[in-house]
Design a protein around this nucleic acid. Sequence first.
DNA 1: AGCTAATATATGACAAGTCATGTATTCTGC
DNA 2: GCAGAATACATGACTTGTCATATATTAGCT
Lengths: 169, 169
Amino acid sequence: MPKSTQTKAERIRARRTREAVNIFSRMPSAYAASRSQATKFLQRAGGLSVVEWRVLWDLSEAGPLSIRDLASIQRVDHSQLSRALPAMWRKGLVNMERDEVDGRQMSITLTEVGRQAYEKAAPIMKQRRDALRRAFTPEELKQLAGYFDRLDAFFCQPLSELLNEDSQA
Amino acid sequence: MPKSTQTKAERIRARRTREAVNIFSRMPSAYAASRSQATKFLQRAGGLSVVEWRVLWDLSEAGPLSIRDLASIQRVDHSQLSRALPAMWRKGLVNMERDEVDGRQMSITLTEVGRQAYEKAAPIMKQRRDALRRAFTPEELKQLAGYFDRLDAFFCQPLSELLNEDSQA
DNA sequence: AGCTAATATATGACAAGTCATGTATTCTGC
DNA sequence: GCAGAATACATGACTTGTCATATATTAGCT
């Protein structure tokens, strides 16, 4: 059926259907929904931001860390932490000291206030992970993590490797 | 082994390993990598932004659309399009006219310049989707899309439904 | 020691996304 | 036909993320 004879509603529905199976277009909304949900959980658990929660969690689990360590664990650009940490320090959540051994690094540690904020949020966030485990079986979660690994690898491939096949067409 | 006897490198490695299977923490980096890759492809295909590309693609596939239509197809907040479209209009990529039938709606259409920009970018972006189909089988992509549907459903659930089980613990 | 390279952090500029709120228009029920 | 509800859009304020670039410190080589 030629496009011109379709109603607008039909065109939109066709487009939505096609986009539903487009992995690229699914990523932003899935991520946005995840972040929105996390924000709501954290709102109920003391009002931490997502970035703050991740920092407190990592520090609580892996002890004193530098900015680069945190960035590498969280797979984010270090600039994000470089900007977020001073605000967390002003709130009393973390200590930031220059490393005595390597004067370039900052050593970030949890304060007592930070530990309390973490312990307040942790059980709520654990409930979120528990809820995910009710929605997906362990095998499914493992498979999903595997897909994420492969997606990461795909997204990080150099352009040249993706474009070299019949790129002149 | 108690945490205090681990080296810092061991603590970081343990934390990274654990985070690798945490779906929540995988979403941001996977999405960021996807967006970064899309940006690079678009840079090579005329310099469109991701938002611009999506708008041109939708308009090209589904004809004249309102802001709300575009937002619903793309699963984003309408404010994003409300802000992006005037800039696209200034670049000559789209026309924006108030709908004659419904004076609240804007009718967004592709201009000739917009159509050319789309046709320049489209083959490159198609190569990206083709490359994805080389990295994943059709069955895997179908399964992945199914997981996204279920993740969407999980993320959009009201908090109360996720917290009501042993939430007092 | 001293020069160069590498590393760790800070910061400016930006893209993409959210939510809340305000305004104009249309729809609905009486 | 009008009051109030609903809808479409605009806009301000914010979060999360990127990249590029500058600066300070350490590491390595001679």
